[in-house]
Design a binder for these strands. Structure first.
Lengths: 142, 142
DNA sequence: TATTGTTAGTTACAAAAACAACTAATATCC
DNA sequence: GGATATTAGTTGTTTTTGTAACTAACAATA
């Protein structure tokens, strides 16, 4: 009954394997170059791409837990990639913005990500790529 | 130049989000029911589906590091889901086999995985499903 | 048959993630 | 206005992972 069910066809397994494999090389890039962790790169990306926002905003947009973001923000601050600014209206919030160095790192990594993405999907034809992204976005609930 | 590059289109990001989202519910199942970790479930699956083999075989087939497998085997042994058996010919190897309880757990989880997989892809039509799996297998290097 | 190399698996330690408990600021409701 | 609840963010502790060093068995070679 379940004898023909192969783990290689089990979607969560496949997705994890593909995610791990595809992350590995890019991870090496931001790790060796900027000493960043994955969450740091994501926070940097969100601020670089969408501009100033609070930690909470990043949590919501990126689907990350607040402790992860909190620690990533601290790390990026120590690397001088971002600064915090109190929001007068509500002092629980801190608006986060990238420094010059932060913007440079973002620009570099974003360009690299784009190249990397292109290389990764080079073997697929355009409608395969679109379909792949659509399927993944649906599964991810984005 | 890179201003229009959205992280939601970056394949490693998408793959990770989709992998996390899709794993969550199933993970909850084997965790609450059998107290298993992800690696334990994978080891269990390999032994249940492909029969007796050594830890090394599982490493190779599942693309897992030997320390992970070693710990998972210890954990599954303590749960009485598998037993080890020395290989006379070469005492470095240990052949691993599921116990009755291990087989039961495998059957239960495999059936659940199958249901879960079906539910996950219910929104896609057949050729989308095939393409998705093919793309993922290629990216994962399987 | 010593020497060196390789392989399977374990163990120990460091890095990272997950989870819970906490502080401080603001909102709500009596 | 004061008790209570919520929200943003941090800190501390426990799990889990990653990495490297290790043991034991075998292989190869001189």
């Amino acid at each position: 009954m379940t004898d023909d069910f192969d783990i290689k066809d089990f979607l969560p397994y496949l997705l994890n394997q593909a995610a791990d494999a595809s992350s590995l090389e890019f991870q090496h890039y931001y790790k060796s170059r900027y000493g960043m962790l994955r969450t740091e790169w994501r926070v940097l990306f969100h601020l670089g791409r969408y501009g100033t926002m609070t930690a909470k905003d990043i949590c919501t947009r990126a689907g990350l837990h607040k402790t992860k973001v909190s620690r990533a923000v601290t790390a990026l601050e120590q690397k001088r990639f971002l600064t915090r600014q109190e929001v007068a209206r509500d002092r629980r919030h801190e608006s986060l913005q990238l420094t010059k160095a932060g913007h440079r790192a973002f620009a570099d990594l974003a360009a690299e990500a784009q190249r990397f993405d292109a290389a990764l999907t080079a073997g697929f034809d355009p409608d395969e790529r679109d379909m792949l992204r659509r399927c993944l976005q649906q599964i991810a609930g984005l």
